[in-house]
Design a protein around this nucleic acid. Sequence first.
DNA 1: GACTCTCGTGCGACAATGTCGCACGTTGTC
DNA 2: GACAACGTGCGACATTGTCGCACGAGAGTC
Lengths: 249, 249
Amino acid sequence: MIQSIERSSAVLRLLAAGPDRLRVKEIADALGLPKSTAHGILRTLEHVGFVEQDPRTTRYRLGRGLLDLGDAGLDVNELRSRALDWADALAARTVEAVRIGVLQGDSVRVIHHVFRPDDTTQAMDTGLVVPAHATSLGKILLAYDVTALSLGGLDPYTRKTVTVRRELARALAEVRAQGWASAVEEWESGRAGIAAPMRTFGGLVVGAIGIYGPVERICDSRLRPRPALVEQVRATAHAISRDLSGPRR
Amino acid sequence: MIQSIERSSAVLRLLAAGPDRLRVKEIADALGLPKSTAHGILRTLEHVGFVEQDPRTTRYRLGRGLLDLGDAGLDVNELRSRALDWADALAARTVEAVRIGVLQGDSVRVIHHVFRPDDTTQAMDTGLVVPAHATSLGKILLAYDVTALSLGGLDPYTRKTVTVRRELARALAEVRAQGWASAVEEWESGRAGIAAPMRTFGGLVVGAIGIYGPVERICDSRLRPRPALVEQVRATAHAISRDLSGPRR
DNA sequence: GACTCTCGTGCGACAATGTCGCACGTTGTC
DNA sequence: GACAACGTGCGACATTGTCGCACGAGAGTC
């Protein structure tokens, strides 16, 4: 049994039982814990949105996160604004177009899009909905989402599109193993993408970020994603994840 | 930030987001955790009632404990049945009457009572409601309950009853520090009690158990609770706490 | 119906992590 | 205005949680 989780549940029960907000000292005394330990638990619980601290009275009460456990506490807009600067930087470094997507039903909704720096003739992709099983963004989101793979028919878009469910499952397992995904000419011929997951507290995946462009620039001569680009995408995703797991508000 | 708590929140969110029950593997993969780690977290969460595992499908879903955070997941009857055997043993070893109480409003409700082994002329105390500030059971419950000390007037019952709120607060702090409480002729003259807290997961106090009897047997010549008896009560309370934190159902 | 594969579970060793004690700065109280 | 009590942060230690591996069982498949 994990001690800190047991203690957390006790704290939550205490807050639920108590009529009004509680002080750190009260909680610590009630549970027989040092102030410091109780404080650490409370900080974490606040961090994940299960409790909230009234900044004026410094007292703690139950947080909204308990009520709406559904989302990770951050909506699409917040995710977008958080990832915005990072996406720009990624586009600048890789000189490729950057997309950020979240899962919406069985498909991927592109919630942010950065043009490739030196290319002016591009369409605005924000708001676009793309298939999940044929894009790198989608593979990431499917790989880490448990509701996934309940999707309907795997429509083919090119000759390289994965349409066999078993094959897709194996691909997703590989994505999980290596921590990033690619899709080479599986959605549009001549185009390829590399993507990585953006995570919140505890590793929960809330979105995907990736680059997208002509095969000849994304991949090497053997049509394998260039390691340098993969590393850029991964590093950016990691940075955003750290940001998302960081201070709220 | 405490890692395991963050992960727990991610697990809970995952379960809340997913439409149906989830497998260990799915959760582990979604969060990028080893199966074993995810399993440990799930075991603990099940332990505290935040998730439940369908014994047939072995899948996990959100538990009732999240909904009714109010009580510790165990009602008075369960607490009673859990502590029953221990109470008998305590009575046998100390040769004193044993009482188990829970907080009910500002008072203590005695939910279980064991007669003193060699005494036949005793009244049945189960169901009795006694004042909190003048009994050892009550002091324990007040010391560890955060809603406490909001109680009304501190009625005096004997000359030794603590009626000054400040004095009571200091007494409760001492109770917390030493982990047990006593009340010597504060409720009924000639009678004294020694009590200790019964705890669940994380240290949450759910009740008090103690012995009660004539001063001359409970205390030494200086009216101090006999250390041997204190140790017996504490040991029993600890044993019950271990039991309560053990396997559910 | 037997096989194979995948999953849930348990154990042990390691090291990372959470815990604890102490001290600071501030707030609320007498 | 002075005191006390609280919330907060830091660091060292040791406990605790994590990870890898292996067993056994169940379901799906041929």
